[in-house]
Design a protein around this nucleic acid. Structure first.
Length: 223
DNA sequence: GCGACAG
DNA sequence: ATCTTGTCGC
């Protein structure tokens, strides 16, 4: 499919994204972290989804799915490259989460459909976008103190919070994915911090997705 | 036309 | 994203 068609699809899907809180369970009891990585020089797409209990933030389950890569990386079209593997990992979960932290942007996207929003729509579950870099929009200088936040603005609307999660670390871009308000998104991320730059769900998903041995040993599920 | 550009 | 060890700074 050419980009023109994908762009049209994004605009269509973006109109269905819900930017307000619509949790099935409030507060969420199970929070997931989702991340995607690549192997074999990019020929294989590897998705990881971890399930953490809230508020304990302890790992309950994780699933990894590997499928042939179908699309190259094109800024603005990341979700089409990543969602197939994410859906596969999603199907493998023995329990579904009440909220998902997705690595990447939600509505802070040129057409308001980053991977967090796209995936949230596909599985009809609340999602929050947790990105490490800006894709679009502008923001003022962020004070050095941890906890500081400034809005990410584009065409007159706030698309995300640029939030300093930790001292001397680059800020995170927190946005609505689907069925979670912007401010609520930031507050849930803040409630899932444990002293690192990334919130626990995305931190575990990152670790599992990149198969880091130090983490895999600790990833034994207690039962 | 020029620069920017999630993972 | 991924290729990759040590190293400088807080």
């Amino acid at each position: 499919m050419e980009l023109g068609a994908l762009r049209a699809k994004q605009l269509e899907l973006a109109s269905s994204v819900i930017r307000e809180d619509r949790f099935d369970t409030d507060p969420p009891r199970l929070i997931a972290g989702a991340d995607v990585g690549f192997e074999q020089g990019g020929e294989v797409t590897r998705a990881a989804i971890v399930l953490l209990k809230y508020p304990e933030l302890t790992l309950m389950e994780y699933q990894i799915a590997r499928i042939p890569t179908t699309m190259p990386y094109i800024p603005g079209f990341l979700s089409f490259r990543e969602y197939p593997a994410l859906l596969r990992a999603w199907e493998q979960l023995s329990h579904k989460p009440d909220l998902i932290f997705v690595d990447g942007h939600g509505i802070s996207h040129p057409r308001r459909l980053g991977v967090a929003s796209h995936f949230g729509l596909l599985v009809d579950t609340p999602t929050i976008g947790v990105a490490k870099k800006r894709l679009c929009g502008k923001f003022d200088d962020l004070p050095d103190a941890p906890g500081e936040a400034v809005p990410l603005l584009d065409k007159g609307e706030q698309l995300a919070w640029v939030w300093r999660s930790k001292k001397r670390c680059n800020p995170l871009f927190i946005s609505t994915g689907h069925r979670v308000g912007l401010d609520t998104s930031l507050s849930w991320v803040q409630r899932c911090m444990k002293g690192y730059r990334l919130p626990e769900p995305t931190r575990w998903a990152d670790a599992v997705a990149s198969g880091r041995p130090a983490f895999m040993r600790l990833a034994e599920i207690p039962r």
